[in-house]
Design a binder for these strands. Sequence first.
DNA 1: ACTTAATGTAGACAGTGTAAAGATTAGGTA
DNA 2: TACCTAATCTTTACACTGTCTACATTAAGT
Lengths: 205, 205
Amino acid sequence: MKKKQTYHHNDLKKDLIKKGIDLVNNEGLKSFSLRKVAAACGVSHGAPYSHFKNKEKLLSEIQIHITEEFSKVLKETIAKHGEKPDVLEHLGKAYVVFFMDNPHYFSFLYTQSNIRIDLTLNENEDSNYGPFEIYKELSLSLMEKANYPKDKQKDAVIALWAFIHGIASLATMKKVYYDENWEKKIVDFMNVFNCSFLENNNTKK
Amino acid sequence: MKKKQTYHHNDLKKDLIKKGIDLVNNEGLKSFSLRKVAAACGVSHGAPYSHFKNKEKLLSEIQIHITEEFSKVLKETIAKHGEKPDVLEHLGKAYVVFFMDNPHYFSFLYTQSNIRIDLTLNENEDSNYGPFEIYKELSLSLMEKANYPKDKQKDAVIALWAFIHGIASLATMKKVYYDENWEKKIVDFMNVFNCSFLENNNTKK
DNA sequence: ACTTAATGTAGACAGTGTAAAGATTAGGTA
DNA sequence: TACCTAATCTTTACACTGTCTACATTAAGT
């Protein structure tokens, strides 16, 4: 119901990315194919090669868009809750919920795409994986406020990230059975590890 | 240098699984194909269909073998360190090291295969994912010994598993840069979260 | 009106999974 | 021994994939 009649699509590149994201999101990478995406855009199977060198390059652009979408969600979460002590809980929850809302994104981003994540805490703001940079800055800032020992901050940044990342991994995995609500349990999980910079130990005796 | 001359292979099924594991291990699932595996066994591309209904079924058997290999490593670790307080550290280390030794196994097992993981802590010993059952039994037993509050044991089991799982995920991801030795850092990460049933808080202040 | 570059189509090729028909062989039975 | 049957393997065929190449169409500038 658009403009299939014209030879030129007018913004095929964007449309390929959009329809490509839909395909990844709905069916996962396994059944993703360039030809399907081309067909979804109403265009011949060779057309994508005018905009992307190969399949990998289209997937790479899709990864960039998904990463930006993810970063936006995290930023909004921080903006909403400010640098209050419990913001890390909300950030963790947002991390997990983002991938639960888009179940195929997790394995696509973390095991199929070519994202680069630098965990060394060096200055990296431009080239590094955006979501980690956002989290890193926030958590380091909170640790400073909490007077968390400087020599342990680096370990703490990695450990908490791995922890949340692991929960998201489990929560989005097919065939994982769990009788609780992942989203609601995040805080309980954090309470298991009572840790001074997570200022929620008050709920623990 | 074997018996390519005979029409029958004599144990093609096992050989397909073995050569299939090699292929997954060396090149990952992306470049895994039934025809390559068949060729590696010196057999025509149709032969595997006498032993497996389709590609998925072969991959499923490969998953079972890898899972058993993983379970074996975990059991050996427990056998070696007994139920001493620091056994969870060694188990976590074994978890991470297993996947670092076989980098393609992680995404294969957890995002490409069809393993079933029941985290509800119900009785499941036969059908559930073996490695989790092994860990679950051990950690619950340790929590009992440490008088860890009963109503928090379930959360603690999941949280610690997610944590170790997350570290393994990061440690085996392509293009993740980290300037420390993952294996050696496991204990430090655990120390970030000082927790009564992890009896290693003594190393913290 | 003509040129040029960008953008699209069509056809070909190799590699993939899988199905079907047939060849080979092992093992049991007469 | 000779035969039968089921298991195992080969061959052929087909649809689908990524990618390449030659060519068609079009937009934009001269």
